[in-house]
Computed example of a mutant assay.
Amino acid sequence: MRDSIDERLKLDQNAQVNEIEIQKIKANPYQPRKTFDQARLKDLAESIQLHGILQPIVLRKTIAGYNIVVGERRYRASKIAGLTHIPAIIKELTDEDMMELAVIENLQREDLNAIEEAESYKKLMEDLKLTQQDIATRLSKSRPYIANMLRLLQLPKEVTGMVKDGKLSGAHGRTLLAIKDKQKVKKIAHQASRESWSVRSLEQYVNTCNDGKTKQSTSSQPASKPKFIQQQERQLKEQYGANVMISTKHKKGQITFEFKSEAEFKRLIHQLNEKYKEE
């Protein structure tokens, strides 16, 4: 039976730590994360300048030098800090090990955006000939979770780029999958990003589109909403300082206040209570 990824990476407490020239080190070719937060790298670089590198990175020896197995942020920050050598432990690993470790390390750190995560799963499937269930088992995920993440790659490249850039979340992307017209998907995606729609707002808009109740509109509200309801939403937003959505169906309605923190929630409750006392 093949050893677990943790066993293959497990470091002996007595493992030799080597000082390796940074110029001989290359990034893991299977690294799924393509973007690194430069501000956080600079913070780490300042910490390294003050305290040094507290934990060695892990490398694999290659013909041309070394590939990073674990510790690419430390490596990048060390270059910013001006280090010429970095402490490292050398491990013997296969290409398969390198690929799995690169994905797992980033997933455990929650550093990947939704598209990078989905692309990682796709690469594991294609390069290692794994099924969705194989990946789910190895990464302790459910198969439906893997399948739903992979579906994000069906979005137009323009939209996946917005998710990568943080203009939309993975949840926004999954909601947009319900729209089959690719051009409409791009238009709605840009509108949702430009007007900072919540996932819930986007879901309601997509549902009305699919139900045939409205057509694509350049306004921030679905076109099917009566103007007086849109006006009430704007007034409530101004009054309470929060996004408000009013929905009606079968002669019933619902008013939704959106809050993004416990403090904002408490503020809204206080305002609503005060308004009730006044009346």
Rank of each mutant, 00 (worst) to 15 (best):
I25E: 01
K252I: 08
L130G: 05
N67F: 02
K275A: 14
A171E: 15
E96M: 10
L9S: 03
R200C: 05
L11M: 06
K249I: 13
D134M: 07
I86F: 05
T160V: 05
N18M: 05
K24H: 08
N148L: 07
R200W: 14
L153Q: 03
K61A: 11
N113A: 13
N273K: 12
I53Y: 02
A263Q: 13
S217G: 08
R109Q: 15
K141W: 12
Q13A: 09
E92R: 07
L9Q: 02
N207S: 15
L152T: 10
M99Q: 15
Q235N: 11
L150H: 02
N28P: 07
T208D: 15
R194H: 07
S193Q: 05
K167P: 01
K213Q: 14
Q133W: 07
Y121D: 11
L59D: 02
K141C: 11
F259Y: 15
L59S: 04
Q132G: 13
D111S: 14
A178L: 04
Q232P: 00
A189T: 05
I188A: 01
A242L: 14
K91F: 07
E72F: 10
P56V: 01
Q230I: 09
M245C: 06
R8M: 09
A118N: 06
Q13S: 12
K157R: 09
L107G: 11
A27T: 09
Y66W: 04
I53L: 13
G166C: 08
I25Q: 01
A114P: 06
Q16I: 04
M98T: 01
M162Q: 10
K141F: 11
T84Q: 08
K213T: 14
T208R: 12
M1V: 04
I135N: 02
Q23D: 09
M149D: 09
Q191H: 08
L54A: 13
G212A: 15
L272S: 02
K164I: 00
E264M: 10
D3L: 10
R109N: 14
E278H: 09
Y121A: 12
A81P: 02
D211I: 04
L272T: 00
Q55V: 13
V159H: 01
L177T: 07
K122W: 02
A102F: 05
